[in-house]
Write a protein that binds this DNA or RNA. Structure first.
Lengths: 224, 224
DNA sequence: CCAAAAGTGTTGCACCTACACCCATGT
DNA sequence: ACATGGGTGTAGGTGCAACACTTTTGG
């Protein structure tokens, strides 16, 4: 692919999309990648994305990419960073997103995966096109970071969940075990969760089911 | 200004540039703005910026804007956010930067301010073009935030400084008074500063002069 | 009765805040 | 001498991590 030196730069939008998958030991943080169908990096895995459409907003374009890749709307979507590739005359705006794991499962069962899309654990990525590996690492860093002071992890779960399920998400995202009792106290003190009257049963004492407090925001003001 | 619907979007780069100015009571956080010379928002104040040049990198363009506005190179430069204005067919990548206050003073004394550039305290901004006011508020939020866990504030001072001078910068950035003794302990425990053998004299006990420890980074991995 | 997870209580440590106090200089 | 800021010491409080312990279910 050759580009005339004075073409105006084109604008691409890409998305690092995260969800969690139940694993045997602990859960895994998963990300969907697409196999490239053209040069450069033909047949390599890459972040899903596309060109910014005429009269299209950046976030809209990111949502469109998400829908094309997963058939779903994100429960969280935030801009990550804007990269330039002066030699290729491309500026690429990368977003990161969270999807509810139950919706991902349902969608896969119903519609299967689109051609050329595959989910990988972030701990075991294949070779990636461009510098997409370091972009993903940066996105993971942001996710971890934000999980510390915000309630984002909730966006990976259904509306209703037990504390153990939520804790498992945090453990997956943060990559370390958390003390159940301390975790409970932290969240019960935070106003972020509302207890329901329902319980999840199993071979153990029933666990109370919670939902998010819709009043509570996800911290940090955002650009606007 | 009218734009054909199918023009490719143009890419603008803007910079929110910060420095501190000694005030009578406490110091002030200052930001340079430029008066617009064309519609829309003719004659209103706005963030300095310009179009991304052919084959120019984003950060390079931000540095160029900085030099044009202040005649200086920043001691800190970081991408803030990318905004779109679909109706105007513009995508604008905003950076934020820190300048050493001594260099700003020296430059003003030597060369004066460029035409149409004026520094304002962030606490007393004029009416601004576009949504630049909220962009500046977001940049201030990021600066405050980062000052908490990083050593950025140092980028606003000369190479050598006393603890009181550094504390004053933190107080300006964070907008609150800090306890001198606790501030000292915090930084002395952090490895971020290296004591020199010099002292700053005045009508009081001489204050030891410090410099930054070049080994210490400014936290957070950045996108690459 | 036992295993397993839910949920409660308690203790200790680390860190931060506030503030009392001494030190060294210029005027 | 004294005013001013530099610099040290210390006591109280807050929050978190670790862990012992009780509770409630299914098998």
């Amino acid at each position: 692919m050759t580009v005339a030196t004075n073409d105006p730069p084109r604008i691409a939008v890409q998305a690092a999309i995260f969800s969690v998958r139940a694993g045997t030991d602990r859960d895994e943080l998963m990300i969907p990648l697409v196999r490239r169908t053209r040069e450069p990096f033909l047949d390599q895995w890459a972040l899903p994305g596309g060109w910014l459409g005429d009269a299209e907003g950046l976030e809209t374009a990111a949502g469109r990419t998400l829908a094309a890749t997963t058939g779903l709307a994100p429960s969280w979507l935030e801009q990550l960073y804007t990269f330039d590739n002066a030699s290729a005359r491309v500026v690429s705006v990368v977003y990161w997103a969270l999807l509810r794991s139950d919706l991902v499962e349902a969608q896969r069962a119903a519609a299967g995966s689109p051609e050329n899309v595959e989910w990988f654990p972030v701990e075991a990525l294949p070779d990636l096109a461009f510098d997409h590996r370091s972009i993903i690492e940066y996105a993971v860093w942001r996710l971890r970071n934000k999980a510390g002071y915000s309630r984002i992890a909730a966006a990976l779960l259904p509306d209703e969940f037990t504390l153990a399920e939520l804790r498992s998400v945090y453990e997956t995202v943060l990559g370390k075990r958390l003390d159940p009792s301390n975790f409970r106290r932290l969240l019960e003190g935070s106003e972020a969760l509302v207890p329901t009257e329902d319980f999840r049963t199993g071979p153990h004492r029933p666990a109370r089911i919670f939902r998010y407090n819709a009043e509570v925001d996800f911290a940090d003001p955002g650009p606007l």
